[in-house]
Each structure stands twice: as structure tokens, then as C-alpha cells.
Write a protein that binds this DNA or RNA. Structure first.
Length: 566
RNA sequence: UGCUCCGUGGUGUAAUUGGCAACACGUCUGACUCUGGAUCAGAAAAGUCCAGGUUCGAGCCCUGGCGGAGCAACCA
């Protein structure tokens, strides 16, 4: 019974969204000849973030699932705001997510000629006019949501005059802002967007693709639906704030239609995430103000930031699948995103040993010059990932947090007279330790090991409560590890009276130097992902080099011990 | 004093033609464990914004409230 209305995902039912239901129904009714064709229309004025991923997954996902196509279309109708540098990153991010538009890469600017002709057509039909008034006057006449607008004195200009003026606007004869072309609809319409919207304005800045060819540029409302129409789009999916634009979308489409084909705009809720901001403007501010190190700072919710942080496309897609598409403006808990990466990385990330805050342990009864190899399983979740050997010797590093002089009962790690297992190796017992009396810092811990407890040995069945990760001092490689926390310390930093800057988390980046990693990590390459055993998931940063390996923490492991201490 | 959209556990989503409000995250137990991870078992947690109405029966349909969001860029 569920086959039609749900789909399977690893045993979990993913409900069909209202949009998917509409698509199913449209297909069933044979609308637009039973075709589905979507588009993803980014404006090239910033980097894509996870909110865009939500749109991308819908646009490409629906087309893929129902045998249709999805175009990539750069919405470049405003030459002063858009930059070519963003275009490559947008392409790269969509591909990284695993979607492809084949040869269907378009630009709104591809249609400037057709749009211009359509404007001429509207003028000829008495449906558009040139208004000579300044912008503040036009705005004033528009009225307000509660007040109807009044008509422009130029509204009934004859078509010939409009035609002449519009052509001269495009020839650069008039200054920017001196004249606009408006659709003649209804100044009293309760929907502000229908009150003779401006459809063309004069901009003299060169366009990144069309250069100086045009002096007039179409507004969003005059471009988007028409581009959809030109491309044969059937379902134009966008976010909720465009809901009130839909009547305009339909108005223009009506004027364009020559057959039963018609594109349809459907709106869904945009993505909001706790403890972060998802507006291009604010993200740009964070970059410009140096609050982060760039668009791809691993704390950024941008796709390039998440990628650098170690997120997988699969985790992002899974997250998006879980939150769904509705018409309710929701705020999604970031812990759901974190859950999605953990779930994914748990299956695929090899386990390695890395000590972030090293404390030296000396095994006093282990021969000074000896080194032996112990075998470690690469991933207990996936046997096919095999195993590797790592060196064990007399002097080791363990995590500083894994030792306490005077521990509480529930502390299962190393402490005076207590025993723990060194994972993959031996059980050791703490005999004594050396402490710097002036600083209070523990400098070395002295232990003995039991040679009979080697992992895998028949007589190694002795039970201990704790297992620690470790790295051999002589073989360790030094690394820098960057630990990230949420960028903001308020769930909803932009929904408050105070400016969102006030909620920036000053501890969102912690740089740890002198971390000690197992030697196999020397060959790791940027973006390689690992689980540092008992700590979390980490990936190699672009800044990494042979001499100075750098790792980013993607997300910590669930940590019931630290939870217990609170 | 307008128009449009939206109100289901803490959070996000389900609930087919009106039929015992379900799933996930999070939280809390317990089991297991050479990762205090993972896994497994279980628990707490909403009676569906409110008030009426229709109906044998309403989260779903109707009416009226209340609450939230969007809309007054020559931005998209």
C-alpha cells in the first residue's frame, strides 16, 4: 500500500512531500504531455550553502526520480551584483553533491533578446508602458499593503511613444534611474506585486556575459517565469517568499502561452538551522569582516565549508531527506545534521589513533630499544576495510584527559593503581607519576605492562573497564588539529532583537598544535576522512603538508562521559 | 488595519476515502563492547493553537477567533 506514497531508504520510510505528490498527480493527469522538467536557478553572487542543497536535491532529485531533466540556470539579470567568480564554485558544488545537468547549462542572459522582444510585444498590446518618474515617486504611488496605489501619469502613454522611449532607453540615451518599463496591470490590486511592477530598468554597468550590448535589464519577475517557459520547465520550485509573486508569474505566462504547455511555480519552506545563519548577505559579512577565514571556512554552512569540514555529500543528502519539504517555516536542529554525518562516517571512515593533548606514559618494564607491531582493525563496521600494523614501544602518548590523579568512581580510565587496556596492545597499570609542583601539571606517568595481555593472545581475557588510544612517542608524527564549535551560541541568532554579531561564539575555533598521530597518517591527503578513535571524525585540511599535517574535526563522537560529568 | 501562506511531543516530519496520532533527532534507563563509539532493548514526551458546528466517529470537513511568517528594492 505504501509503494506509491513512500519510498524506501535503508529500511526507513521517507514520506512523499506535498510537492512530490503534485508531481505524481500532474504526471498521472498527463499535464504538459506527462513531462517533468525542473531547473536550479542560482544567482551568481555568492557561494552555495546547505539551504541551496535542499533546493538542489529537490530540483535534480524529482527530475531524476520521475524520468525528467533538470537544467542549471544562472540567474544573472543584475550585472552590478553578480560576479563570474561564483559561477565555477556553483558548478563544482552541484557536481560534488552528485548531480549533473549534462549540456543544459543556461544563463538568464541567454534570453535577453527574447525577453526584450516580449517586452516590445507587451507594449504593442498596450500592456506595458515607460514611466518617467523617479523611483521614490513610483514607490510612493505603489501605496502600501493596506493602502491601494494610484496610477502613474504616464500609464496611458500611446504604444508608439512607449516603443520609441524603450528603444532609446536601451540605446543608452537616458540616465540610470530616469525611466523604467512597467507592466500595466492593476494599481489597486491587494497584491503589491501586481501594482504595475517594474519590468525593465536602465543599468549601464557591463554585464559579465553580454558586455555592453544592453542598457536595459529585466527584473527578476520579468525574467524567471519567462526563462522557465523558454526552457520548457514544467515545475518551477522555489522558496516560500515567492508565493506572492506567483500571480505575476502566471500573468506573464498567460501572455506568453501559445499552446497548453505551461510551467507551474510551487513554493516550499527554506532551510533554517539552529546556531547558524543562512543568508548570503550575512555569510558574506562574516567573510568580509574576517569573522571566519573565508567562504570555505569549516565553520561555514556553505557547501565548500562543509566539504572542507569533512562532511560527505551523502550525509547532506540524507539530512535533507530527513527534514522534508513543507510549507511550514521551521528551524531544524543542527544535531540532526551532525547525526547524519556520524551515521555516514561511522560506516566509511577508517579508525586511526591520534592523541590531541598528549601525556607521556613510560612502560617501565618494557625494553628500552624494543619496538613491536600490533594489528589494528581499520573499521569494525566494515570488515572489508582490513587492518594495519602500528608500532608499540616503551614510551607512549595517551590523552591527557585519560588520566586523573584522584578520579571519581565512574572514571574508567588511567589513575594511580588502576589498570586499563591500550587498544590493540597490552593492559597497563599505573604505578606512579611525576607532577610539576609549581604548575600542578602532570608531566609523566609510569606504568607496568602485562606481556600476557597482548590483544588477540589466548590468555588476554583479563577484564578492564577502560580502553585507551595511544601513539608511540618514537614513531609519532606531529600535527595541527583544528577543533570547531558552532559559530553562534544562540539557537536563533538572527531572530533576536540584538544584532546577530552579538551571538558569535568566540570559541568556535580551537587550534591544537603538537598533536601526536600514528605514523600511517603521514600519507593522508586533503579531504581524506578518518575516525580518531574515541574522539571523533576528522579530515585533512587543504593547509596540510608533509611537514605540517593539519586536520579538521568534522564532528565529535557521542560522548556519554562528558555528558555524565555535567 | 489589506492580501497570501502556515499552526501535530523539546525539534523536524507522518497519519491513504474522516477510523486506536506514527517515524526520526534529542533526552533518560538498561544490555553488550578491546572506541564511555557503534549496536541492541526499553522509557518519558503531543491528544493535534482555541471555540463552536457537521458526523456513529474530526489532526483531517465547515464557521469564527488567536498566533506566526511573507509582501510596500529600478534585489533575487
Amino acid at each position: 500500500m505504501n509503494d506509491e506514497n513512500t519510498r524506501e531508504n535503508e529500511g526507513t520510510k521517507i514520506p512523499v512531500s506535498f510537492i512530490e505528490q503534485i508531481i505524481i498527480d500532474d504526471l498521472k493527469e498527463g499535464r504538459n504531455n506527462g513531462r517533468i522538467h525542473t531547473r536550479f536557478p542560482p544567482e551568481p553572487n555568492g557561494y552555495l550553502h546547505i539551504g541551496h542543497a535542499k533546493a538542489i536535491c529537490l530540483d535534480f532529485g524529482m527530475a531524476e526520480k520521475y524520468g525528467g531533466k533538470c537544467n542549471l540556470r544562472f540567474d544573472d539579470t543584475n550585472p552590478v551584483k553578480e560576479e563570474i567568480e561564483y559561477i565555477d564554485s556553483i558548478r563544482e558544488d552541484i557536481h560534488w553533491l552528485g548531480f549533473d545537468w549534462e549540456d543544459r547549462e543556461y544563463f538568464a542572459s541567454d534570453y535577453f533578446g527574447k525577453l526584450y522582444d516580449f517586452a516590445i510585444d507587451l507594449i504593442n498590446r498596450g500592456l506595458a508602458y515607460v514611466d518617467d518618474q523617479p523611483s521614490d515617486l513610483i514607490a510612493q504611488q505603489k501605496g502600501s499593503p493596506t493602502q491601494p496605489g494610484i496610477e502613474s501619469p504616464f500609464r496611458n502613454r500611446p504604444p508608439d511613444e512607449n516603443l520609441d522611449l524603450f528603444r532609446r532607453m536601451n540605446e543608452g540615451e537616458f540616465d540610470e534611474g530616469s525611466r523604467v518599463l512597467r507592466a500595466k496591470i492593476d494599481m489597486k490590486n491587494p497584491n503589491m506585486h501586481m501594482r504595475d511592477p517594474i519590468i525593465y530598468r536602465i543599468i549601464k554597468a557591463p554585464h559579465h556575459r553580454t558586455g555592453n550590448k544592453w542598457k536595459v535589464y529585466p527584473m527578476y519577475d520579468f525574467a524567471h517565469g519567462q526563462c522557465d517557459f523558454f526552457e520548457g520547465i514544467t515545475h518551477s520550485l522555489c522558496t516560500l517568499e515567492f508565493e506572492v509573486h506567483r500571480p505575476l508569474y502566471d500573468w506573464f505566462t498567460d501572455k506568453l502561452m501559445t499552446s497548453s504547455y505551461r510551467p507551474r511555480q510551487i513554493e516550499f519552506n527554506r532551510l533554517n538551522l539552529t546556531y547558524t545563519v543562512l543568508s548570503k548577505r550575512k555569510l558574506l559579512e562574516l567573510v568580509r569582516e574576517g569573522k571566519v577565514r573565508g567562504w570555505d571556512d569549516p565553520r561555514m554552512p556553505t557547501l565548500c565549508g562543509l566539504r572542507r569540514r569533512g562532511y560527505t555529500p551523502e550525509a547532506i543528502k540524507r539530512f535533507i531527506e530527513m527534514i522534508g519539504y513543507t510549507k511550514f517555516e521551521a528551524i531544524n536542529d543542527i544535531s540532526l545534521l551532525e547525526h547524519a554525518v556520524r551515521e555516514d562516517l561511522n560506516m566509511r571512515a577508517p579508525r586511526v589513533f591520534g592523541v590531541l593533548k598528549p601525556l607521556k606514559v613510560i612502560i617501565t618494564n618494557y625494553p628500552e630499544e624494543k619496538t613491536e607491531e600490533v594489528t589494528i582493525i581499520n573499521n569494525p563496521e566494515d570488515e572489508s576495510m582490513g587492518s594495519r600494523n602500528i608500532p608499540f614501544s616503551r614510551e607512549l602518548y595517551i590523552e591527557r584527559d585519560d588520566f586523573m590523579e584522584d578520579p571519581p568512581n565512574k572514571f574508567f580510565r588511567l589513575a594511580p593503581d588502576r589498570e586499563v587496556r591500550l587498544k590493540g596492545a597490552f593492559i597497563i597499570k599505573c604505578e606512579s607519576y611525576r607532577k610539576n609542583e609549581t604548575t600542578g601539571i602532570i608531566e609523566e606517568v609510569y606504568c607496568t605492562y602485562d606481556p600476557d595481555t597482548r590483544s588477540g593472545a589466548n590468555n588476554s581475557q583479563k577484564k578492564v573497564k577502560g580502553t585507551l588510544h595511544w601513539v608511540s612517542v618514537r614513531h609519532a608524527i606531529d600535527a595541527e588539529v583544528r577543533i570547531y564549535d558552532r559559530l553562534f551560541n544562540h539557537e536563533d541568532p538572527t531572530g533576536q532583537k540584538d544584532d546577530y554579531h552579538k551571538f558569535l561564539n568566540s570559541d568556535s575555533l580551537q587550534i591544537l598544535k603538537g598533536c601526536k598521530l600514528e605514523p600511517s597518517l603521514r600519507s593522508a591527503r586533503p579531504l581524506d576522512r578518518f575516525q580518531f578513535q574515541r574522539l571523533g571524525y576528522f579530515c585533512v585540511d587543504y593547509d596540510s603538508s608533509e611537514d605540517n599535517p593539519v586536520f579538521n574535526q568534522t564532528v565529535s563522537l557521542r560522548d556519554s562521559w562528558s555528558k555524565m560529568r555535567k
